[in-house]
């Protein structure tokens, strides 16, 4: 019961998804099952929110390290949730919550600056990594470094300024053109080799799942 039913669900849903692609009569059924999947995805958001509450309430009750900040998380979560589900400040129940009301205000003035800045810090770390870790230790690393230099120079006006004296017949040696060439030839080839490898990996893993060979997602006692 604990293992068999999930396995049957995976196998039947997987086959249906494949069948609906190849066979038009199964298309509506495939669409509805995909819609089920989309709806379940929202429940996964609820699960995420519920889990967040559980973790932080637990931290708060047990007075774990930095428990005070858990209050911030919980308050932020609840205020945003009430503003969104209650459509506070919106004109009507049909209004888009991202366009008007408290929810929208909180998004643009709290969520947006926090999210953007969190990732903006990576600029500092990438610079620090360039200084401390990007070494021409061997020939391969040197090739990587040269390619990176050409791309970095080629994507700025400096690259153009440095090499725009090149004659038309040798224009591929202009840094911006070289950068374009790297992107559309060796980079394309390397990325395509990786893509084909990943593609094969996804296909084989999907087959293993649909045929019931791969069961690790069912947990430890999946047998």
């Amino acid at each position: 019961m604990r293992r068999e039913i999930p396995l049957i669900i995976t196998i039947s849903v997987g086959f249906l998804a494949i069948l609906s692609f190849f066979s038009p009569p199964f298309e509506p059924l495939g669409e509805d099952f995909t819609l089920f999947f989309d709806i379940i995805a929202v429940f996964a958001f609820f699960l995420g929110g519920g889990n967040l509450m559980r973790v932080h309430i637990d931290k708060l009750i047990k007075r774990k390290k930095d428990w005070g900040f858990s209050i911030v998380t919980l308050v932020g979560f609840l205020v945003m949730l009430v503003a969104g589900l209650g459509k506070i400040g919106a004109e009507s129940i049909t209004s888009d919550i991202t366009r008007e009301g408290l929810f929208s205000t909180l998004y643009y003035n709290v969520h947006l600056p926090l999210g953007s800045t969190m990732y903006a810090l990576l600029a500092f770390f990438v610079a620090s990594a360039s200084y401390r870790a990007f070494r021409a230790k061997n020939r391969e690393a040197t090739v990587l470094l040269i390619a990176a230099f050409i791309i970095l120079l080629g994507s700025t006006p400096i690259g153009q300024m440095l090499t725009n004296w090149m004659p038309e017949g040798m224009s591929i040696l202009e840094i911006p053109n070289l950068a374009v060439w790297i992107m559309s030839s060796p980079n394309l080839a390397g990325q395509r080799a990786i893509m084909i490898g990943i593609g094969l990996g996804v296909v084989s893993m999907s087959l293993r799942l649909i045929l019931g060979i791969e069961r690790t997602y069912l947990g430890k006692d999946s047998g």
Partner: peptide, 10 residues
């Protein structure tokens, strides 16, 4: 709409 590729498939 939630569902990533599920949305595209529909």
């Amino acid at each position: 709409k939630a569902g990533n590729e599920g949305v595209l498939n529909v």
